[in-house]
Design a protein around this nucleic acid. Sequence first.
DNA 1: TAATGCATTAAACATTTGATTAAAATATTT
DNA 2: AAATATTTTAATCAAATGTTTAATGCATTA
Lengths: 210, 210
Amino acid sequence: MKNEEPEKDYTTEKKIKEAARKIFHQKGYAATKTRDIAEEAGINLALLNYYFRSKRNLFDLVMAESFGQFFFSIRSILNDESTTLGQKIDVFAKVYINLLNDNPNLPIFVLSEIQANPEWFQKALGLNKKMISSSALFRQIQEHLKKVGKEHINAFHVVLNMLAMTIFPFVGRPVLVKLTGMDDAAFHDFVNERKTFIPMWIKNMLQLTD
Amino acid sequence: MKNEEPEKDYTTEKKIKEAARKIFHQKGYAATKTRDIAEEAGINLALLNYYFRSKRNLFDLVMAESFGQFFFSIRSILNDESTTLGQKIDVFAKVYINLLNDNPNLPIFVLSEIQANPEWFQKALGLNKKMISSSALFRQIQEHLKKVGKEHINAFHVVLNMLAMTIFPFVGRPVLVKLTGMDDAAFHDFVNERKTFIPMWIKNMLQLTD
DNA sequence: TAATGCATTAAACATTTGATTAAAATATTT
DNA sequence: AAATATTTTAATCAAATGTTTAATGCATTA
């Protein structure tokens, strides 16, 4: 019998999946060749189909995982009934920027694949109207906006601004880097500054003095 | 001799280019098949190569145009030395949201192609460090931040926030629509609200009481 | 050690897809 | 109207690409 999980990252299956994730994130589904994945993983082309049946199947696995990271990883934060609005805003920026620092291509990958193939996501992932509007974050923003006399502002605007200010630097990263002359380290410092700036800006938007 | 431009939009060449723009914007380069373009344009496949030599050549034309819209269409606004900072912020949101309402897929298209193929853009388009940092907008933001005692905030953050809040709703549109239950008309109204909200938020960020 | 089952490889297959060709249709010029 | 040039079409080509197959290697088991 085999020893219990010696180094899981070096199994052929893991190598292929990890290589696929890397190339898919970089190039997208259509531009990725199965031979590119095989080369990146350092394995024979046929092993890809041996372990994963098809390119599409492998992609679906990667996408499900990526989509989960992108969307569901922060749900527990935003749905936590025991934290204040100010706390949620603080922790969101920190956690999400950390996530994106580790997966800088994740946003464009997910969003462009959805744009190219919107029907697929309808059934594949269970996105529904309730997911945001029933969240604790959304309700707390609504309540706060009313308290400060700004109930004419749809709370979605505020949520969207949080997401936009956090995610967009990574979506526009290649252009931003060219446009500012930042190298990878400088970009890293720049977005990390935003961990404190974004909560400040959002609270300012809400006139939240917390 | 031919009459001077009767209806330019109905020449075969225009039909192909318009169809190409539509499909490329939706699917991206790699996922777009020349046969899809031909079908969308209602022409024989061979005509694509007859008029444009190759898929790549056609793509380059579309991309150059799209990239120009996306980046250069607002340069004149941001570089205008005769307008105040407040005026620039006001007009930017209006103009850019109008542009994106007409081309909702433009941001993801441009940004994902750049991510998939960053080397190509190095030489193809002339993006350089000076383009933003030497703009009138950038200088005015810097000056203002100093005036209100916030010179520790990099002016790039503010520019990026303007871009993020304006562009991101379109980048995330498919998800946003699913997540909120908005239809096309509702989405249109929602982003149009932001024409006045975004300038308000940015000015608030800058403590600009203009 | 022989046998068995899983993993890996090289080669080939079938389809897709960008591009070309040669003929036909249409327009333009002489 | 005849000749010429331009545009369009159907068919085909060649390369790329996802997938399969049959043989080989390798470890585990009997």
